[in-house]
């Protein structure tokens, strides 16, 4: 249906769109912030200062200003000057660490458990109501309970990541395992392959693409949730940093954080995408 597009043309178009967007942004703010603004009584302005006279709003930064700030932040991303002033690299590393820890623990539990659920229709039916009720719960709803029981804000954030990333992996693993083609299982049976050999040499590779899809969904959700979780628990992490910059009214820093969150999320997704490609099979 769709004709293949050459990569460089798509890239070129992307760059043009980006340039147009940034250019429009830059132009729209040209002249704002430099003494213009709505007409105010000059005497009043002289009295309270231009910024206060225009409503006390911090001006929206221009792309060029954000770029300069980005360069400044990235030129020394890993500095630590006390608990409240750490480089943006450190903050991202904290967030990544929490996500990977929570996600890793979730995978360690969800994949074996999903395997068992997928193999046993009884367990599947018995556990399904719990999964269906717990799955749609917003991960942040767990936060107070986690804070109350764990009493450690950082571990609570990891727990929230764990609880939000477990469901897609659990459900996908169970589905992938239960959907393994009958004929492959029959081959294994006629070869007297045994339970373990069948599980690891037949069912696992057959279900691997579905499991990887679940992992990919999970890490995406985990990265979404960590920002919100860190805004709540505070202390460290990119989510906390965003909130901190909002309190400082550093709009440029917030824009930079949004960009970085997007890029890190993309990298995580691509990483699992590569893994998925490694275990993919075609008929």
């Amino acid at each position: 249906m769709n004709r293949p597009v050459s990569a460089w043309r798509a890239t070129l178009l992307s760059l043009v769109l980006l340039g147009a967007f940034l250019g429009a942004w830059e132009l729209a703010l040209q002249g704002a912030g430099q003494g213009g603004g709505p007409a105010v009584d000059p005497e009043y302005a002289a009295l309270v200062g231009q910024a206060a006279a225009t409503g006390g709003q911090t001006p929206m930064p221009k792309p060029s200003e954000i770029g300069a700030r980005l360069f400044q932040l990235l030129s020394d991303p890993f500095y630590i000057r006390g608990p409240n002033d750490q480089g943006i690299g450190i903050q991202v590393a904290y967030s990544l660490g929490r996500v990977l820890l929570g996600f890793g623990i979730a995978a360690l539990i969800a994949i074996p458990l999903g395997f068992v659920i997928g193999m046993s229709p009884l367990l599947n039916a018995a556990l399904n109501p719990f999964i269906q009720v717990l799955r749609p719960v917003s991960p942040l709803a767990w936060m107070p309970l986690a804070l109350f029981t764990i009493q450690d804000s950082s571990i609570s954030a990891v727990f929230v990541i764990f609880i939000c990333s477990i469901w897609p992996m659990l459900l996908n693993t169970a589905f992938g395992v239960s959907a393994v083609r009958r004929e492959w299982l029959n081959v294994a049976r006629t070869l007297e392959a045994g339970t373990w050999r069948t599980a690891f040499r037949v069912i696992l590779p057959a279900a691997a693409p579905t499991i990887l899809t679940g992992m990919r969904i999970s890490i995406g959700i985990a990265w979404l949730v960590i920002v919100a979780a860190e805004m709540l628990v505070g202390g460290t992490g990119i989510g906390y940093w965003v909130w901190n910059q909002w309190n400082n009214l550093s709009i440029a820093d917030i824009c930079i954080a949004i960009l970085l969150i997007g890029l890190v999320g993309l990298a995580l997704d691509r990483l699992l995408g590569l893994l998925a490609r490694a275990v993919a099979w075609h008929e």
Binding site: E183, W184, N186, V187, W281
Partner: peptide, 14 residues
């Protein structure tokens, strides 16, 4: 007793 299946029943990842 070996079986040759109607569909080849080969494992596509091998």
């Amino acid at each position: 007793r070996a079986v040759i299946f109607q569909g080849h029943a080969l494992m596509p990842w091998l």
